[in-house]
């Protein structure tokens, strides 16, 4: 589709633009992280910020995630709005105390008297043979723990609006961006992520899912990269006369259960696509949202296309065997109707 005056941005540029626009109007916003200044972020999401705002507000840190994420908590409690980057979500292991014991709990433990308005950006996802310490999604790990909002854009429009919303939120927001959507020249990018993105500042509501494609016969729910697999599968299913609805969760916390339920009430069938590990995660939560509410809407048992419960392997053929893809989604639909 051609849009007049179309202004396509990658997610990386959309994120950086949102941060820059907010920094121009809010002196409390600043950025900390590893390689976010001169390099502009390993995944490009802070590119250009150092030139405009200087090293006082765009701070490269030592490789000390516990210290700088903890420091962000302290600065947020002191009235600032830090944006910090955990370069790969897999690195949460060295700093989770600052995240889930401080960032996520201080509002509650203070009875609401302390606010922790900060954004924790982190890259997710694999598919490029970086193996299991640099390829995980860990959506369920973060979404499971109360006290932090969690968002995962699937395209640049949402990426910009979610970032602006996250910086303005008085609660901590974990902003999980998928590497395969980011638009880095050296890493293949899903073309559907690079979309028209308005120049002016705007917000995308945190906690509100979107119907990425309307359909009648089956609901495919996903987030981030999985949305593109779902849209791809839906296009193929359409050729076979099947009308698939695709729900982009956009946010994992708060989870927009109403939009999921309304869609499944219409279609009667549910497939959840999740690049995070299968068990105890987002896919199970989405299914429970429907079955706990009204199991009678289902015409078939729900299906999951998720990462198997194994660490992420290096070898291309092994990793690709494990990852969700459109073919697995189509197969899930076919199994659902064969049963």
């Amino acid at each position: 589709m051609n849009v007049p005056n179309e202004r396509k941005l990658t997610i990386a540029r959309a994120m950086a633009e949102a941060v820059a626009q907010e920094m121009r109007v809010d002196d409390g916003v600043f950025v900390m992280g590893e390689d976010i200044a001169a390099l502009g972020g390993v995944y490009g999401n802070t590119r250009g910020l150092l030139d405009e705002f200087g090293s006082e507000r765009i701070r490269d840190t030592p490789i000390s995630e516990t210290a700088f994420i903890g420091a962000a908590v302290g600065a947020a409690q002191d009235g600032m709005r830090p944006v910090v980057e955990l370069m790969f979500v897999d690195f949460f292991g060295v700093c989770f105390d600052a995240i889930y014991n401080l960032m996520a709990k201080n509002t509650y433990f203070s009875g609401g008297n302390f606010k922790v308005p900060m954004v924790l950006m982190t890259s997710t996802g694999g598919g490029y043979s970086d193996a299991g310490q640099h390829s995980q999604c860990l959506y369920g790990t973060f979404a499971h723990l109360p006290g932090m909002k969690v968002v995962c854009p699937s395209n640049a429009y949402d990426a910009k609006g979610l970032m602006t919303a996250a910086m303005r939120d008085d609660s901590p927001v974990v902003y999980m961006y998928h590497k395969s959507l980011q638009g880095m020249g050296w890493l293949a990018t899903e073309p559907g992520a690079t979309v028209h993105t308005p120049e002016e500042s705007y917000t995308v509501e945190i906690g509100k899912a979107k119907v990425a494609r309307e359909g009648r016969d089956v609901t495919i729910v996903s987030v981030g990269m999985g949305v593109h697999h779902a849209l791809n599968a839906a296009a193929q299913l359409e050729a076979d006369g099947v009308s698939a609805e695709v729900i982009d969760l956009v946010s994992l916390v708060p989870l927009d259960r109403d939009t999921i339920r309304a869609s499944v009430a219409k279609t009667g069938r549910l497939i959840v696509v999740d690049e995070d590990y299968m068990s105890y995660g987002v896919s199970g939560e989405v299914i429970a949202s429907v079955t706990e509410h009204d199991i009678s809407v289902l015409k078939a048992a729900p299906k999951r296309v998720a990462y198997p419960d194994v660490p992420i392997p290096y070898a291309r053929v092994m990793e690709q065997f494990c990852l969700p893809n459109p073919e697995k989604i189509i197969a899930a639909y076919q199994e659902m109707n064969a049963a």
């Binding site: 002196d27 409390g28 600043f30 006082e56 507000r57 516990t66 210290a67 700088f68 994420i69 903890g70 420091a71 962000a72 908590v73 302290g74 600065a75 947020a76 409690q77 002191d78 009235g79 600032m80 830090p82 105390d97 600052a98 014991n101 401080l102 201080n106 203070s110 302390f114």
Partner: peptide
């Protein structure tokens, strides 16, 4: 503010100092 986790008050106190320095 307190934390019941050993050493984990360090980051927030440093962050408060950063906030005062920056502002």
């Amino acid at each position: 503010a307190c934390s019941g986790i050993i050493a984990q008050g360090m980051g927030p106190a440093v962050g408060a100092a950063l906030s005062r320095h920056m502002q």
